[in-house]
Structures are given as C-alpha cells and as structure tokens.
Amino acid sequence: MKRRTFVRLATAGTLTVAALGAGGALWLSGPAAPVSGFATIAHARRWVQAIGSGQASATAGWPVAQVFEHCAQSIEYSLSGFPQANSAAFQHTAGSLAFATFTRVGRMQHDLEEPIPGAPALVATDLAVAAQRLDAALAAFEAHTGPLSPHFAYGALDKAQYTRAHLMHLANHAERVRQA
C-alpha cells in the first residue's frame, strides 16, 4: 500500500472514530433520565420492607433472599471498599461508559446472576433477615457523609451518582421479584 493511501485511510478512520466518540459523548452528556423503578432510597426501603415482611419469589435466578444479600453487599462495599476491582483502564473506559449509559436512560441492565467480584458466596435463605440487612445497608448509605469507595466497575462515584447506581441496581433485580 502506498504511504499516501495509508495516511488517507488512517486519517479517515481516525476522523470517523472521533466523530462517533464525540456524538456518543454528546448523547451521554445530556440530562439524566429519572431512575426507573425507585425514585429515592426511602422508596426503595419501603419496597424492601414490604417484600421482607411477606412472601416473595424470584421469577428466575437467585432466590429473593440472595438477591437482597447481593444488593446489600454492593451497598456495603460502596462504604467499605469492594474486595476486587476491575483495572483503572476498564473503569475509565467501559465501566464509565456503562454507568453513563445507565444514567442517561435511567435504568440498568446487567447479568442478574453475576456475583460481585471477590464477594463471599450468596448463602441467605431467610427472606426477612436478608431484607433487614438490605434495609440497614440502604439506611447506612443514606446517612453516610464521608468518602465513598470506588465502584469495582465504574470507578469513583460521588454520593448522587452512587445513589443512582444503587437504585438502578436494585430496580434491575426487582424486575425478577414477585410478591406473593
């Protein structure tokens, strides 16, 4: 290939990638959509308390007690630190892009049976106990005023961003929970 042809193709490719990147960044920088499912932590806590005080089942995947255990782990780790993190490169690219996309559309879509990296295996069987743990984690997060630990996939998030992340995460899992 002639050098001039290579330079033209390389320049065209770079400009295309830059244009797509700029368009994506512009779309992602738009206003955040309202969180689908739970508008506030108080709303999420009321739902958790209602589910925990009754009968519930999962339509697929983990039992509801383990869903609650998993969501509690995520919230607790935002305060204390995640056991394992993806690389900084991942957090600054795919991780931050995923979070920006979720924020933009107001909902999260993720593998609902993927454990948090390095977290203990899910073992909860008592729905009421798991609901109490999740409710306590939500209350502790809401009351927390200190620094937050970086998310294992998204990296550093401020309190408002973490609130959105937790609400979207719980709402995504809630899609599989049915109250009896």
Rank of each mutant, 00 (worst) to 15 (best):
E142Y: 03
F152H: 03
F141K: 03
L122C: 14
G155S: 12
A153Q: 11
Q161I: 04
A140E: 06
Q161E: 15
A140C: 09
L138Q: 01
L134R: 04
E142A: 10
Q132T: 11
A128M: 07
H144G: 11
A160V: 13
A128R: 14
Y154F: 14
S149A: 15
H151V: 05
G146P: 04
A160P: 07
P150D: 09
H151Q: 08
L127W: 04
K159S: 11
K159N: 06
G146W: 04
A160I: 14
A139T: 15
D158V: 10
L122P: 11
A143G: 09
A131S: 10
T145A: 15
P150H: 05
A130N: 01
A143M: 06
D158Q: 10
T145E: 14
R133M: 11
A136H: 08
A124K: 00
A131W: 00
S149T: 06
A130Y: 00
D126A: 10
T145H: 14
A153K: 06
Q132A: 14
L138Y: 03
K159R: 15
L134S: 05
A137N: 03
D126V: 08
Q161T: 05
A143R: 13
Q132D: 12
H151G: 04
A128H: 13
G155W: 09
V129H: 11
Q161V: 05
Q161P: 02
L127P: 00
L148T: 04
L148A: 05
A136L: 08
S149F: 00
L122H: 12
L134F: 12
L148V: 08
A156N: 05
F152N: 01
H144N: 13
A137C: 06
D126Y: 08
L157K: 04
